[in-house]
Simulated assay, not measured.
Amino acid sequence: MKLRKVTAASAAVLALAVTATACGSGDGGSGSGGGKKIKIGIKFDQPGIGQKTPQGYSGFDVDVATYVAKKLGYSADQIEWKESKSADRETMLQRGDVDFIAASYSITPERQQKVDFAGPYLLAHQDVLVRADDNSIKSPADLNSKKLCSVTGSTSAQNIKDKLAPKADLLKYPTYSACLNGLQNKAVDALTTDDSILAGYAAQPQFKGKFKLGGFKMTNENYGIGVKKGSDLKNKINKALQDMVADGSWKKAVDKNFGPAGYKNEPAPKIGDIKS
């Protein structure tokens, strides 16, 4: 009987040890590397920013996230990429579906109430993309009576109509790729969203030399890396972002992903410096 008690106690200790080990192995955000994974949210459908292709994942946000993950102790093959659509980002962080999100994620007061942000790591602006041979659009006011394309659900085109070009003819397409095809075929005169996103699309090989950015800088979009509210990853990611700028990796990522479109990027923003 005494032997049974000892055996039962030993079994209980062993079970607790196994449980603790199992729990520890699932902590993707500890930054300790080893055999663990880190889950990172990105866009899957934004060339130059975050795109899933048959060859893997590419884009500026992918390069930034990969660099950050390495600084946290994770190699590229330990990253589990998760698609983070715009409407799902806060929920994914709150539920713990991902450790952090780098997905053209503008820092806003409304979002800061729900999640924390490291960064910013890029200052983008709302802009327009036009055909390379079109010299008729030199300012936002020139969009009056022009066909202005944006994606269904986006507020970018409406912002221009409300504030800058009240006579613009707004057209809503389902995707940016559809807008680009319309721009190429002269069904529309301009496409509007963040300049970084526009540069990413225009930098695709099939569009090289066909489009140009207006350079209007109509809004400030401070891209940050989202983390769960109260997460200690925020400070670690901020340090990684500072290192990325300091060692030149940030500039290389900008040139690689946006350079072919003639994107005139802002200098790397200072951590915590959010432009209104």
Rank of each mutant, 00 (worst) to 15 (best):
V245W: 00
P140I: 09
D243Y: 10
K252Y: 01
G96V: 14
G224E: 09
L123S: 02
A240L: 01
Q184G: 08
G262A: 08
A253W: 10
K239I: 05
L148R: 09
S25L: 13
W250M: 05
P166R: 09
D45C: 02
D169Y: 12
E221R: 15
K36Y: 10
K186R: 15
G33A: 06
F211W: 07
M1E: 15
Q242N: 13
D63Y: 09
S156V: 04
C149I: 06
K5P: 02
E80A: 12
C23W: 07
Y173W: 02
K5H: 08
A202H: 03
W81K: 10
D232S: 14
D243T: 08
R131C: 11
Y57G: 01
I271S: 07
I101P: 02
Y173R: 08
N185L: 12
F117Q: 02
D255S: 13
L143S: 15
Q46D: 04
A12E: 00
L171R: 14
G224V: 03
S154K: 09
V64T: 05
G272V: 01
D63R: 00
F60S: 00
A76M: 03
V115K: 03
L143I: 11
K5Y: 12
Q206N: 01
K85S: 08
D189N: 13
A76S: 11
N159M: 15
P205G: 09
S10F: 15
S150C: 07
G259Y: 06
N238M: 00
A190R: 04
G31K: 03
T193K: 04
K82Q: 13
N135E: 04
Y57S: 00
K5I: 12
I225A: 01
V18N: 12
P205F: 06
A17F: 08
G24H: 15
K163E: 08
A268I: 14
I40S: 04
A9F: 12
H125N: 14
Q78A: 03
L148D: 11
I237N: 00
R89Y: 04
T193G: 05
V128D: 07
K163P: 01
A261Y: 12
A17P: 09
D195E: 13
T152E: 09
K147P: 01
T193M: 03
K228A: 09
C149K: 09
D88E: 15
P174T: 06
S104C: 02
V128H: 04
D99M: 05
